[in-house]
Simulated scan of single mutants.
Amino acid sequence: MNDLTVDIFAGNLKWNETNMISRSFTCGYCGAYVSSEKGMPLLEPGSGYNTNYYQKNNIGVYICNNCCMPTFIYKDIQVPGNRYGSPVKGVPEEVNNVYEEARSCYAVNAYTGTVLLCRKLLMHVAVDLGADENLRFIEYINFLNEHHYVSVKSNEWIDQIRKYGNEATHEIEVSSKQDAQLILKFCEMLLKMNYEYPSIVNND
């Protein structure tokens, strides 16, 4: 149980609906980077609004001024967290659902889940682009590489993706935040090159 939970259950803190000191953050719902001063600061009962510790440190629920959804921020904790990466247009629904689920896993710090979902995503993409079903993961990665669905300068990326995919599945090891960011960024790049950019040209 963290300090915040203890303070709330002990009655040391309360929610107070009012304007807040402005804070910038990336909204976990719409993905927009916003600066908001609307919400409910977390206050110590009896403390002055402008002098208490929590208000000075921008702690509480902030309302996104883009989508109007609430984000809770406490020190380095943000709920919901930032969904790493960007939405990609022109992606088949089944493939896109896996990509967005991986981004949602990242937002709740489920980094091993993110890596495993990205592994599944790459298999979906390979099959959608013409690979046979029921192949091994490494065969799908080789298919994407050999058929030039991946940039010719992405050999280091490919090697890392093979490594992370195998570790997350076959070894007792928890993936790190950096692992999740790398494979998500690779998936975003792959989806944009093979779906979003071609769809823009086809629509012109």
Rank of each mutant, 00 (worst) to 15 (best):
I59S: 12
I59P: 00
G60V: 01
G60T: 04
V61N: 05
Y62W: 13
Y62M: 10
Y62N: 08
I63D: 05
I63C: 08
C64E: 04
N65W: 01
N65G: 05
N65C: 12
N65F: 01
N66W: 01
C67Q: 06
C67A: 11
C67P: 04
C68L: 13
P70E: 09
P70R: 07
T71D: 05
F72V: 12
F72W: 08
I73A: 04
I73C: 10
Y74I: 03
Y74C: 12
K75N: 14
K75W: 03
K75F: 07
D76Y: 06
D76T: 12
D76N: 15
D76S: 14
I77A: 13
Q78H: 03
Q78N: 05
V79E: 12
V79C: 09
P80D: 05
G81W: 02
N82V: 11
N82M: 11
R83D: 00
R83Q: 15
Y84S: 10
G85M: 06
S86A: 13
S86H: 13
S86W: 01
S86T: 12
S86L: 14
P87C: 10
P87T: 13
P87F: 06
P87A: 12
K89C: 08
K89Y: 08
G90A: 09
G90I: 00
G90K: 05
V91N: 05
V91M: 06
V91R: 04
P92M: 08
E93A: 14
E93C: 05
E94P: 00
V95C: 07
N96C: 08
N96T: 03
N97F: 02
N97Y: 03
V98G: 01
V98I: 15
V98P: 00
Y99M: 12
Y99H: 07
Y99Q: 12
Y99C: 09
Y99K: 09
E100R: 09
E100D: 14
E101F: 01
E101Y: 00
E101T: 10
A102Q: 05
R103G: 10
R103S: 09
C105N: 14
Y106M: 09
Y106Q: 08
Y106E: 10
A107C: 07
V108P: 02
